[in-house]
Computed example of a mutant assay.
Amino acid sequence: MALLHRATLHPTKLDLLTTWLPGRPWYQGPTGVEMVSRGAYRFDDPAGEVGIETILVAAGDGPVHQVPLTYRAAPLQDADEWLVGTMEHSALTHAVLSGAGQAEQYFEVDGRREVRPPTMTIDVDGGGDVPEVGVVRRVVDEDDTVIVTDAVELVVVRRPVAGAVGARGATLSGTWDGQSTAVPLAYVRTR
């Protein structure tokens, strides 16, 4: 469950993504144009240590890009090159392989919870065993980001579109405003 706080953020996540995203090798679209959110989803970390939120954004009429963000109590060691977009692979991997749904988000107002409706719908076809993920052995950050660990290979689809065929395995798919057909967002294969 994700507790959201009513707060003013400066810069905003979209401000950060507007400057960060065009520098990624998998980015396609205009530069110097503000990113617009198309939807987002969250997962709970099974260990309760890391929050993960994935935002789907686009610049102008450019394609939708998927950007996982993590929230941590302390910086992730040896991850300075990923100021925006680092992800705790075990939370996403666990969610896809276990078939877990997205985390419920809510605001606390005057001592009571107000549920925040999701901005997109996700579906996972997992539901199987979740292995110990192990050590990250390799990361390939191209059109899709592939994270290879001791036990799994996680593929994050960076430009999710309908009809895309990608890696096979347990699949996370989603729909959002303007995208009524479910599209693949991530795949997990055990090794």
Rank of each mutant, 00 (worst) to 15 (best):
D110V: 09
V155T: 15
V133H: 08
L172V: 09
H65F: 07
T119D: 13
V84P: 04
L97Y: 08
D141N: 14
A170W: 02
A73D: 09
H94N: 08
D125M: 02
D177Q: 13
D80W: 09
P160F: 01
V152L: 00
V115C: 05
Q77C: 10
G111M: 04
P131G: 07
L76M: 12
G126H: 05
P68N: 11
A151P: 05
S90K: 14
P68D: 07
L97M: 09
A74Q: 13
Q77P: 06
V136E: 07
V140F: 02
P131I: 02
P68R: 03
V152M: 07
A167I: 03
V157E: 03
T119N: 03
G126E: 10
Q179M: 04
V136L: 09
T181P: 00
A167S: 09
M120N: 10
T119K: 07
M120V: 01
R72H: 02
G134C: 08
T119L: 09
V67E: 11
A91N: 05
L69W: 00
V183H: 00
D143M: 12
Q77N: 11
E104S: 12
V155Q: 13
T121W: 02
A182M: 05
E104Y: 01
Q105T: 12
T86Y: 04
D177N: 04
D123A: 15
V161S: 10
S173A: 15
G134R: 10
V84F: 14
H89E: 15
A164M: 03
R138K: 14
D141H: 03
T171V: 04
P131Y: 03
A164H: 08
E132Y: 01
D150Y: 09
G174Q: 09
G126D: 09
D129S: 15
R112D: 13
S90P: 03
L154D: 02
Q179P: 00
A73C: 07
E88K: 06
E104I: 12
R137D: 06
V130H: 01
P68L: 12
S90Q: 06
L154C: 08
W176E: 09
D80T: 13
T171E: 14
V130Q: 11
P75S: 13
H94T: 13
P131D: 06
R158P: 08
V67N: 01
E81L: 04
T149H: 04
W176H: 07
L97S: 07
A100K: 01
E88H: 15
E104F: 04
W82Y: 15
D78N: 14
V165S: 13
W82E: 13
V135R: 12
R116V: 12
A170C: 05
E81W: 00
W176I: 03
L76N: 08
G85F: 10
V84S: 11
G99S: 11
V84R: 03
D143S: 14
R168W: 02
A103L: 09
P184N: 12
T145P: 07
T149Q: 03
A186K: 03
I122R: 06
A170D: 10
L69P: 02
V109R: 06
M120S: 10
T121R: 14
E108V: 14
G174A: 11
